[in-house]
Design a protein around this nucleic acid. Structure first.
Length: 592
RNA sequence: GGAGGUAUGGUGUAGUGGAUAGCAUCAGGGAUUUCGAAUCCCUGGACCCCGGUUCGAAUCCGGGUACCUCCGCCA
């Protein structure tokens, strides 16, 4: 309730001064009331007791009595040492009608400022289909991108392509040396490829990768294989064009398959940057030369080089190796070069990383500081695991995102088909796709990123209560009202533009909706600036719930007569829901 | 062993110093001839343990316990 606070603070300041409160610290004590029924903002008066020599109850009472009247302020009351202030519902209505809360309009328009923000997320190794273990990164990252855009920021979504690791090397080796028959023979006894994904390169090629992994363990010539893969990886790290090309030919179709899956979830990227670029363009070797001049530089017996970050306060193992004994670079070294490159193109840098990258991120950060560069903001998240334990492609304990989305779509289709036998199969399918993918996203966004997350089918596919379809349904209902009004021959454009009387008395549901709409922007701001998308997810849930209450209490179309104010409010709420849903990647379908 | 994270009704969670701890699910009961029943209302049930700081602690500090992650010249 930032707008109420701005009005209230000067008024309170005056009163508090007049009764003898000297420090201005109280501003931080003015908080959102915990109980909605009590007020919008509350001021606990306990800390004033000592200074004033009066009981908090008396003080609260005194403030309540001397607070100057203002249109924005509805009820003021003193309860048990708390001063509770409730906004005047009519004032709230006026704020809402005056567009003070229409944050949705920022969406799709020119960014409000010129700060360039680069968000790097997902960056999964392209060696197999996208699985739900990786989903938290992609969904969190994409939601952050969307929320920044909703807020009016200028954002670029970036994918860092890991095109030179051992995993890619293994894949490239397998594709070169193994026939389809050999692959399937090696994998006999394992779960076969889902027929549905025949021909999708990420699902096809992961078979080669898996077969290679088995062969590397078992086959008699495994030393030779290992040596060959080693040579390829080594060559790639020295910028060997031919090998890098072979690697790209191996992984690109897989990456394309993964991106197709992400696309289905509404996840897109603006730019892709290949790791190998920093080797081939010389950045990495320049960087390593620079490290040599650092006073914390050290060299191991075999010639490998490191920076001793213990001297900069790092605990535990303090040597941060950036060069192998053979002179080649390491992943982290390239990552630093990548960060310097990124900083040249943005003002703010955000990385979305799993909690297993915490140490690495710290080392990179410290090294960047050593180089005089800024440190990126990082959104860390805890892993998604399965009820059976950690997700692992190797052990076959894995849920592919393609399968999850397929199942989500099917289950949503069953629900829609049951409720609406009148819809055509195409329509059912379209709605189900929207509901299914949105449900999967929302299920992951709504919880705090640092909380461990266990994937459960029944939760991912829940379509009621605190789910995306619940929100979608409220929105669809608001759309339905507008359709009904149009069908009744009402000129909607004129109704929206016409000026309406603010109602003198308001039902509970309407007040609730107004209050929720008035804190919407506050929550978005916090979610964006603190990088905690789940705050906004919960706010949107609240908005949908409030809209349901409004819908229950306030008729818009009654006996063919339009209540203009109610209609306008409904339309504003609908617009707010729609843009907010887009901010979270929930598809705002108009009927379902 | 060291470093980081997490701990809230049966289950999943919100809550970064203020009141009667919010939501969903679950269990039980109820509403609805109405602008859409993927809705709404009622009842039930929780802050890991022990200390400390504070007028006031789920929240901050210290110490336990449990779970997760990391501690490669891998990526």
């Amino acid at each position: 309730m930032q707008m109420l606070r701005e009005i209230l603070e000067p008024l309170l300041d005056e009163v508090l001064k007049s009764i003898g409160v000297t420090n201005a610290h109280w501003r931080s004590m003015l908080v959102r009331s915990r109980e909605h029924d009590q007020g919008d903002l509350s001021l606990p008066c306990f800390p004033f007791a000592k200074e004033l020599g009066k009981s908090p109850i008396e003080i609260a009472q005194q403030i309540a009595e001397s607070l100057e009247a203002h249109f924005a302020i509805g009820e003021v009351n003193a309860v048990a040492g708390y001063l509770n202030i409730k906004a005047n519902p009519t004032w709230l209505a006026q704020q809402v009608m005056d567009d003070a809360i229409r944050i949705g309009d920022a969406f799709g328009k020119k960014p409000a400022n010129n700060t360039h923000i680069l968000i790097e997320h997902t960056s999964a190794n392209p060696n197999g289909p996208f699985h739900v273990g990786r989903a938290r990164n992609a969904i969190l990252g994409d939601t952050l991108v969307r929320l920044h855009r909703l807020f009016g920021n200028n954002v670029r979504a970036e994918y860092y392509v890991d095109d030179m690791g051992k995993q890619v090397g293994v894949l490239a080796w397998a594709l070169k040396h193994l026939s389809k028959e050999e692959v399937e023979q090696t994998l006999v006894g394992r779960e076969p490829i889902n027929e549905k994904w025949q021909g999708k390169a990420d699902h096809e090629r992961v078979r080669w990768y898996q077969a290679a992994q088995a062969i590397r363990q078992e086959r008699s010539d495994k030393e030779d294989i290992e040596a060959e893969i080693g040579r390829m990886v080594h060559a790639s790290e020295h910028g060997d064009e031919e090998v890098l090309q072979a690697f790209q030919d191996a992984y690109q179709p897989v990456l394309d398959g993964m991106l197709e899956t992400l696309k289905r979830l509404g996840i897109d990227f603006n730019t892709f940057t290949k790791e190998s670029m920093f080797v081939t363009n010389g950045d990495v070797s320049k960087l390593m030369e620079k490290f040599k001049t650092f006073e914390i530089h050290g060299t191991a017996d075999n010639g490998a080089e490191f920076l001793d970050l213990g001297a900069r306060g790092l605990k535990g193992k303090t040597e941060f190796f950036f060069r192998r004994g053979d002179g080649s670079s390491l992943y982290a070294t390239r990552d630093i070069a990548y960060h310097i490159w990124k900083w040249n193109q943005c003002d703010q840098l955000i990385n979305v990383l799993g909690e297993d990258h915490k140490l690495q991120a710290k080392q990179v950060g410290m090294t960047l500081t050593e180089l005089g560069e800024k440190i990126p903001d990082v959104l860390f998240y805890s892993f998604i695991k399965l009820p059976e334990g950690k997700m692992s492609t190797r052990k076959g304990n894995v849920v592919y995102m393609d399968d999850l989305l397929e199942e989500a779509q099917a289950q949503a289709a069953a629900v829609v088909g049951e409720i609406h036998p009148d819809y055509s199969p195409e329509m059912v399918s379209e709605i189900a796709e929207a509901a299914g993918t949105s449900a999967v996203r929302f299920n992951i966004i709504k919880v705090s990123p640092d909380k461990g997350f266990t994937f459960r089918w029944e939760e991912a596919l829940a379509f009621e209560g605190g789910s995306a379809p619940f929100i979608m349904y409220s929105h669809a209902r608001a759309c339905s009202i507008a359709r009904k009004c149009a069908a009744a021959g009402i000129d909607l454009g004129a109704a929206v533009d016409s000026s309406s009387e603010l109602p003198s008395s308001m039902p509970k549901g309407m007040v609730e909706l107004l209050r929720t709409m008035c804190v919407h922007q506050d929550v978005l701001s916090k979610a964006v600036n603190d990088r905690r998308p789940h705050l906004f997810a919960n706010q949107l849930l609240q908005l949908a719930t409030s809209f349901n209450a409004f819908y229950r209490d306030c008729m818009i179309l009654q006996d063919g007569e339009l209540n203009v104010f109610n209609f306008q409010l409904s339309e504003l709420a609908r617009n707010l829901m729609r843009t907010s849903m887009q901010g979270l990647g929930i598809v705002p379908v108009e009927q379902m």
